[in-house]
């Protein structure tokens, strides 16, 4: 099963390597990891996409909570949430095909952000599925490069994604 885990961490030296190292050291799978500071510059949120059965994901969460610099850890896939990923796609686009590609980009609500006589760079944001569909459609024109941010996710509703404290979640489990 695919899980998205949100980790609120203190912005301290080496936190990223502790989290990433936990995954490699314990053999957990990592699909993507993205980090950015929160509204409070003392903290960052890491969004980690991972795969594993319930037992493994439970261990991943517990091990993440065990790190001294993690404040909160939440399996976002357990709540109603929104997931997005941004991609920059560079594609061959000779003048002959440009109009066609513009059409596709519009349909997917992407943006052209660079243009040369031979190529285009498109910025597109969406769920994993949408982004995959977009790449599939562009494939025939010749994709030069795809760069993606990895997923970020946020809970729906008025509670913050990581609002559940370690204590709350422990109580829930019990």
């Amino acid at each position: 099963m695919r899980h998205i885990i949100s980790v609120l961490v203190e912005n301290h030296f080496g936190v990223l390597s502790r989290v990433a190292g936990l995954f490699s050291g314990r053999g957990y799978n990592i699909e993507s990891l993205s980090v950015g500071v929160t509204d409070d510059p003392k903290y960052s949120i890491m969004t980690i996409v991972t795969h594993g059965d319930d037992k493994i994901v439970e261990q991943i969460i517990k091990q993440l909570r065990k790190l001294i610099n993690t404040i909160r850890v939440r399996d976002v896939t357990q709540v109603e949430h929104i997931e997005r990923e941004m991609m920059l796609v560079k594609v061959h686009a000779s003048p002959k095909y440009r109009a066609e590609i513009f059409g596709i980009v519009n349909t997917f609500r992407g943006k052209i952000i660079d243009l040369t006589s031979e190529s285009l760079v498109i910025e597109i944001t969406g769920t994993k599925d949408k982004n995959k569909a977009f790449i599939d459609v562009l494939e025939v024109y010749g994709i030069i490069e795809v760069v993606r941010t990895g997923s970020v996710a946020i809970a729906r509703g008025s509670k913050s994604t990581t609002e559940f404290t370690k204590q709350d979640i422990k109580n829930q489990e019990e």
Binding site: K55, E58, Q59, K62, Q63, R65, K66, K170, E173, E174
Partner: peptide
């Protein structure tokens, strides 16, 4: 005292942290 030790190897029916 370590929640990560509980159900790590063997599934636990009654965990007490």
């Amino acid at each position: 005292i370590d929640p990560a030790s509980i159900s790590k190897i063997v599934k636990i029916d009654i965990p007490i942290v």
